[in-house]
Simulated scan of single mutants.
Amino acid sequence: MKLLRWLIGRVVILVNFLTQPKSPKLSAERQQEIAELTKNLSLYHLPTCPFCVKVRRAMKREGIELPLMNIKDNNYAVREELVNGGGKPTVPCLKITHADNKVEWMYESNDIIAYLENLVKQGSASTATAA
């Protein structure tokens, strides 16, 4: 079973590599704006998890770069932080640190993608109204 899981994981990584979406061409100002909007976010993931790949691909399409916290990288502190904060060792999980230092843990790939897309969309709308 472990061999099958390893093999499927490698296939997921290969398919992701071969079909990688392109990053958008963004101005330096827009890149800075997105970085500012996402500075309090980090993604807990596994490299071979298909749902994590789905989130990372959506991030690439939107031009979002987040710190990626690999829970399987022989780094038990990262996994423990996820379990202690979010309550379960499930990935993908988006850690959102609010301005008041309150931390929210968001699970479910579709919810994470929708949150990130909405965040970027709201940021571009506020920039358009300010201009």
Rank of each mutant, 00 (worst) to 15 (best):
K2G: 15
K2R: 11
L4E: 14
R5T: 08
R5G: 04
W6A: 14
L7Q: 11
L7V: 12
I8Y: 11
G9K: 00
R10K: 07
V12N: 08
V12F: 08
L14M: 11
T19R: 11
Q20R: 12
Q20T: 11
P21L: 10
P21V: 05
K22R: 05
K22D: 15
P24A: 07
P24W: 02
L26K: 00
A28L: 11
E29T: 06
R30F: 00
Q32I: 00
E33L: 15
L37N: 02
T38P: 10
N40I: 00
N40M: 09
N40Q: 09
L41H: 07
L43T: 00
P47Q: 09
P47D: 15
P47R: 04
P47S: 13
P47L: 07
P50V: 03
P50W: 04
C52H: 02
V53C: 14
V55Y: 02
A58T: 00
A58F: 02
M59I: 08
K60A: 10
K60S: 08
E62G: 03
E62R: 05
G63D: 12
G63M: 12
I64V: 14
E65Q: 13
E65G: 03
N70F: 08
K72C: 12
D73T: 00
D73I: 00
N74P: 07
N74W: 10
A77L: 11
A77S: 13
E80Y: 10
E81M: 10
L82P: 03
V83N: 02
V83D: 05
N84H: 08
G86Q: 01
G86W: 06
G86D: 04
G87M: 12
G87P: 05
P89D: 12
T90K: 05
T90L: 11
V91Y: 04
V91W: 04
V91L: 12
V91F: 10
P92L: 12
P92I: 08
L94F: 09
L94Y: 03
L94K: 02
H98T: 06
A99M: 11
A99Y: 12
D100E: 11
D100Q: 09
N101G: 02
K102Q: 15
V103R: 00
E104T: 14
W105E: 08
M106N: 04
M106E: 05
Y107E: 06
Y107P: 03
Y107C: 06
Y107W: 03
E108H: 06
N110H: 10
N110R: 06
D111G: 06
D111S: 13
A114M: 11
A114Q: 13
A114T: 13
E117F: 03
V120E: 04
K121A: 14
S124L: 09
S126P: 06
T127V: 12
T127K: 11
T127D: 14
A128P: 02
A128Q: 04
A128R: 02
T129S: 14
T129R: 07
